[in-house]
């Protein structure tokens, strides 16, 4: 397998460095959101009414759809603006982190400049589309 040579990335405060830092900080932010969602669920009577699997599903994405199939009697407190903001933050951090990861894979394995540029654009389009679809799901559920 023969691949073309490419210039090494530049050092300093540039897009790649910012995204490198963002990947790490967004990971911490996602841990924080999971802890907030977990604590919130336990305060909202998850202990008596939810299985561990449902609790984890809520912790990963605090969306009321994830509580619909449990024994929670009053779902209204799970649908507040606070949880919608948390869900949108999770969507933003997870989406940007994940699709930037996808971009890293593209940069590593695609040596053709033209295909790499098209895939970069495709990743950006997927990110914008999935964020808009996700926000629609969050605000309508």
């Amino acid at each position: 397998m023969k691949t073309k040579q490419r210039p090494a990335p530049l050092g300093g405060f540039n897009f790649d460095y910012i995204m490198w830092l963002f990947t790490r900080l967004s990971a911490l932010a996602m841990y924080l959101i999971v802890i907030v969602a977990l604590t919130g669920a336990l305060l909202m009577s998850a202990r008596q009414n939810m299985s561990i699997a449902d609790l984890m599903r809520w912790a990963f994405m605090p969306n009321p759809n994830h509580v619909a199939s449990t024994n929670i009697p009053d779902i209204e407190v799970w649908k507040t603006i606070f949880w919608q903001v948390m869900a949108i933050l999770m969507l933003f951090f997870a989406g940007a982190h994940g699709l930037h990861g996808l971009l890293n894979v593209v940069e590593d394995y695609i040596s053709s400049r033209r295909i790499r540029m098209s895939l970069r654009a495709l990743v950006l389009v997927i990110w914008v589309a999935i964020s808009l679809i996700g926000i629609t799901v969050i605000v309508t559920s």
């Binding site: 969507l91 990861g101 894979v105 679809i133 799901v137």
Partner: peptide, 20 residues
């Protein structure tokens, strides 16, 4: 794992939208 999660979560968001 990263690729699996991107595919899983992406399709799951799409499915959540379609199911509505």
């Amino acid at each position: 794992g990263g690729l699996s999660i991107v595919i899983f979560v992406g399709l799951h968001i799409l499915a959540g939208y379609l199911a509505n």
